[in-house]
Write a protein that binds this DNA or RNA. Structure first.
Length: 525
RNA sequence: GGGCCGUUAGCUCAGCUGGUAGAGCAGCAGACUCUUAAUCUGCGGGUCGAAGGUUCGAUCCCUUCACGGCUCACCA
């Protein structure tokens, strides 16, 4: 039995909710801007628990709610035509146009972006669009229940408020038929389906039938528990902001029991994640959010999942874009070797790593240990080939025998490596092989020229049947014969080859470059 | 003011349902005629924040306290 947190939570759901034909796990967010990786933690947490439940043989409904009937409160920083968009403030975001004009609405643009990225990491929930639900009057009964239990709801919320809600407070808001805005005031309710509101901008009064128009919407703290009951949600985690006493999850759990007659879902609290090694904030209000797409530029889907599967939800962690990236890829590869029994650790650790590896896969785990291409090595290969992925991979021993899936993964990793090298690697990590056509030769001392001649001689004999170490040692001999300090010769050679004082370990580097290419550079000395 | 979470080797942290603590980095010693945060080998007795309690036995459970962080009470 696995002690992974996803399995523990799956067991907990079954224990607390009893044996059911189907369990409903839910997640969701308001698409009022680019969805950032912080929000991703919630959905992947649910995905992992859903997988655990399914693997235990349970049927699971995995819901993702887009709260696209929420109000457009603030024009996002990324919008250039601000004046035009200020017109839409207080509208439901589902009616606000897409600033890029690609999708039918601002909400849809944000939704489509995330949905596409989620698919890449193997997360395919059933999406529910709350604007569609509300506007189809799906929740008429739920809204009426809230109206009927208005006093009770107010009393629940007041338990946690510093200043109590006024007597004229209603547990519902209305988008005006005349302006689309929620700048309205409820003025009456007929005790059944008729709700009357006053539109403050147009000064008009209007009565709607909850069963026929979708203008009415429950505020968040009531909407959430109403939908728990409607969708019969068994599990939904939430961020720590919601989980404090008096926070929205807490009031929702009271409301769902006392008003909607449903038990609150099993839950856990997940902590926030931060970003290390690059600029950009996590809040959606500033334009500079780090999205799932941004993270996937540097992390393969499996490695990204590994990051979350390997970390307990209630601990904070940072997604790194700095040199940690190399370490994380190495850790992932190690985890993979442990899964395939190629590296031995104690059984307890092995069991844990195996489970993490399974949960990290987008699809089923490979049948056998895939050829691993160390991230750092891949970076060097790409640098040698100026970022040409095909050329870099062709230098990998055995690459031509890879099957299609292996090739696909290798290319994916190479793309991440190249993105990382270009965007985030430290400057001294990068190098550029000199092009003899366009670069003037350096001036050398006599001893250096002798050494270069010696190296040419070695290269002319071919490198293919020499080991990295052998080539490396050859350079020492050359240095000694030329009367140079090896250290100085190394520096000189790097200057000649990559125009920097340092570079990749020379033995392997020369072999990877290939004798002909190196000779073309050395020929001029 | 309420709630939640931390406090474990110099640093970063594992230790998930109690049996007297582990890993990475740093450090030290040795090897490598070198250079990717260089590589290899060896070296880890730290009152597990403090004090009580439960237990045959607690880093892991309970209580209290100290320090640190987050969060709620406006909206989602």
């Amino acid at each position: 039995m696995s002690s992974h947190w996803a399995d523990i939570n799956a067991d907990k759901i079954v224990r607390e909710k009893g044996e059911k034909d189907r369990y409903t796990c839910a997640s969701g967010i308001t698409p009022s801007g680019t969805v950032h990786v912080g929000n991703f933690r919630e959905i992947i947490s649910v995905d992992l628990v859903v997988r655990a439940l399914r693997e235990k043989g349970h049927e699971v409904r995995f819901l993702y709610s887009w709260d696209d009937y929420d109000v457009f409160r603030k024009v996002p920083a990324t919008v250039t035509d601000r004046e035009r968009f200020e017109e839409y403030l207080r509208w439901p975001i589902t009616l606000v146009p897409d600033p890029e004009e690609t999708y039918e609405s601002f909400a849809r643009a944000n939704e489509a972006e995330l949905e596409g990225q989620l698919e890449r990491v193997g997360i395919t929930p059933e999406y529910i669009y709350q604007a569609t639900q509300y506007r189809a009057s799906t929740y008429a009964r739920g809204i009426r229940t809230a109206l009927e239990k208005r006093d009770r709801i107010r009393e629940i919320l007041n338990r946690f408020r510093t200043s109590p809600l006024p007597d004229e407070w209603w547990p519902v808001s209305v988008f005006s038929r005349f302006t689309n805005r929620d700048t309205t005031r409820i003025v009456g309710w007929d005790g059944e389906w008729g709700l009357t509101y006053f539109c403050e901008e147009s000064g008009q009064e209007d009565t709607i039938d909850l069963r026929e128009t979708g203008f009415a919407k429950l505020p968040w703290r009531i909407d959430w528990p109403m939908r728990w009951a409607w969708e019969q949600v068994d599990f939904e985690p939430a961020g720590k902001d919601h989980h404090s006493e008096g926070g929205s999850f807490d009031t929702a759990r009271h409301v769902v029991r006392e008003v909607f007659d449903w038990e609150p879902p099993v839950t856990f609290q997940y902590d926030f994640i931060s970003i290390k090694g690059r600029g950009g904030k996590m809040s959606s209000s500033s334009g500079e959010v780090i999205s799932l797409r941004d993270v996937l530029e540097v992390y393969q889907p499996e490695v990204l999942r590994y990051l979350f599967a390997g970390t307990r939800p209630n601990s904070e962690f940072a997604i790194s874009f700095d040199l940690d990236v190399i370490k994380i890829y190495e850790d992932y590869d190690k985890c993979e070797r442990i899964y395939f029994g190629q590296e031995t650790v104690n059984e307890k650790r092995a069991a844990k790593e195996r489970r993490i590896y399974e949960l990290s896969q987008v699809d089923a785990p490979p049948a056998a240990l895939p050829a691993q291409i160390p991230f750092r090595h891949l970076c060097n290969l790409l640098l040698i080939h100026d970022g040409t992925i095909d050329a870099a991979l062709a230098d990998m021993p055995g690459y031509t025998e890879f099957d299609d899936e292996l090739k696909r993964r290798a290319r994916e990793r190479a793309a991440c490596a190249w993105n990382w090298v270009q965007e985030f690697a430290p400057d001294d990590f990068r190098f550029h092989v000199v092009d003899p056509e366009t670069t003037e030769p350096r001036s050398l001392s006599d001893a250096e020229r002798t050494a270069v001649a010696g190296l040419r001689k070695m290269l002319a004999a071919g490198l293919d049947d020499r080991s990295d170490k052998d080539v490396q040692n050859g350079i020492y001999d050359i240095a000694r014969d030329a009367g140079l300090e090896p250290k100085d010769l190394f520096r000189t050679l790097y200057l000649i080859l990559v125009n920097q004082e340092r570079g990749p370990r020379l033995g392997g580097f020369l072999k990877t470059l290939g004798a002909p290419r190196v000779l073309r550079i050395l020929e001029r000395y």
